[in-house]
Structures are given as C-alpha cells and as structure tokens.
Design a protein around this nucleic acid. Sequence first.
DNA 1: TATTGATCATGC
DNA 2: GCATGATCAATA
Length: 243
Amino acid sequence: MNCVRLLRDFLRQEHRRMSSMFKTPETEHELMEAARGLAGQRLGDLAKQCHRRVPTSFHQSKGWVGQLIEMMLGTDAANRSEPDFVKLGVELKTIPIDHKGRPKETTFICTASLTQMGGWAYIDSRVCKKLSRVLWVPVQADPDTEIGQRMVGNPLLWSPSMDDERVIRADWEYFANKIANGYVETISASEGEYLQMRPKGANSKSRGWGIDEDGASVKTSPKGFYLRARFTAKLLNENYAAI
DNA sequence: TATTGATCATGC
DNA sequence: GCATGATCAATA
C-alpha cells in the first residue's frame, strides 16, 4: 500500500533527523557527561525531546526504553553486532530497577552461534567484547509508576573485575563445550553461575541451525546469552553507595 | 516471588 | 533468519 510506504519513509526520515540532533560522543568523558545529563529526568520528558510517543505499557514496545536512551546518547552501531559506541568500544545497557532498587530482569547480551563454538577462545567471543566496557543506565521500572513518570538514574561506566570475568568465562566455556559437542538441546536456563542461555527468537516455533551429537546440522531453538539478575544486582551494589 | 521459557518490534 | 532493543507471563 502506498500510504503505508509513505508513512514508513516519513518515520525513517524523522528517526534520522532526531538521531542527528544527538551527537555521537568522541570520548568516554563526553559520553559520561551526556549520560549524567539524563540522570534525574523522566522518560516522558526525554521522549518529548525526540518527539516520541510514550507507550502505556511495554506489551508491544519491549525495547522502547533502550532505544530511547540509545538515541539520546547518540549510539552509532545501528543494529550491527558491535558495541553501541563503535569508536569507544562501549556497550550501552539500560537496566530496569524495581521498588527495592534491584534489577527486575536479566540482561540480554547477544545471540549465540549454535553451529561452531568449538575452537573459539572466550577472548574472541561476542560475550567478552560486549561486556568488556558497559555503560549501565538504571531506569525505574516499578509497575505502579506510569512509564512517562519513571526516572533515569546515575550512569555507571563499568568493566568486569578479574573475579567476575573468571566466572563469566567459565560459564561461557561450559556452554561453548556443550554446543561444540552437540548438546545444544540439553542446555537449560538454570545452568551457568552469572551467564545463562535462554531462547531468543520470535517465539517457541523459531528455528535456527545447530549441531547434534553426530556433528550433523539440525534445526534448533535459537538462543541468546543473558546476565542473571543476581549478577547485575551484585554489580550495582558494588558500584553505588547503599541507600 | 524468583526464575525459566516465551514473546514483541524493527531492520536488512 | 539473525541481529538489535528488551519484557511478559507461566510455573516451580
């Protein structure tokens, strides 16, 4: 339909116009200045600044907060599998905080290749690259507070400690071994201490390629890597003064 | 009520 | 289908 196309093109132009309003930071310092500028502001106000409608629920807009903050901080990775701020090597993550000040959800890291993780080193993995430098932006997520009224918190520029990295690496290697040896189907979300692997697809009928115990290609449920809320809670506790 | 498994939107 | 951004909701 022609009008659908016109609308789509209009929305794309609008998106580009808004994106260009927010400059991509050149340094970590610039990035932090911009992020601190968002702290204390409400999602409704931020949405207004880039002419976006605030959804009444996230049922059909699950990535809305992340995309809003991305735009306001000028990320430049688009949907490539690189850190959000390509030049800085920094990944942006919004993190929903409940009324007790704890993460409400796990944090998605990246999708997983289920065909060939054997022979790879953790250092070269997408998990390692994404987690090497993360800008955490806490956002209130109390369901009793209207979305537009929810506040953005103080940003945290973070890298994993050696201890954290050891655990994450061990988790990753555990999963990598399972995948490489044909045990994709036995992976459960209950495995992994800090990392976890869970379905990541349109729905339970989604299928991607994997390998079975004989090394043959099979269709299997796509999966992604996530950080457990237990881990992100620890991370926030270590880096923010107790309330 | 915390966690696991399922699901939504969008771009290419 | 796979990558990005995540939250929803059934269940243990």
